[in-house]
Amino acid sequence: MKGTHLGEFEELVLLTVAILYDEAYGLAIQREMEKQSERKISIGAVHAACNRLYDKGFLAARFSEASQKRGGKRKKLYRVTPAGQHALTQAKDLRQKLWDQIPGTAFQFSWQG
């Protein structure tokens, strides 16, 4: 198994998968991410991230039933695994811990100095 480090983009993808719950497949994830972050996100990047997360064990995948749409290809649907959830929580906790340590004065900007 490869390293279990969670990159920033990967974290966003993982969260989006969680949001979409049962409807998380490549294109849907990309659209949701574009909508939420209001920036352009390439489908290739999403595919790569999903598959990497799958390799790391943070995502589980299954194929939907085939339909006439999508050129007869099935959707690859993702769900967050417990390991994924754990990784997300860890990332969030880390951030929280860091936030908590910021001294009150750190964000009091002095515009003269």
Binding site: G26, L27, I43
Partner: peptide, 15 residues
């Protein structure tokens, strides 16, 4: 192993 997912999503995107 990536073919189906890519092709499907690209197809849908195209439509």
């Amino acid at each position: 192993r990536f073919h189906e997912e890519m092709e499907g999503d690209l197809h849908e995107m195209f439509e």
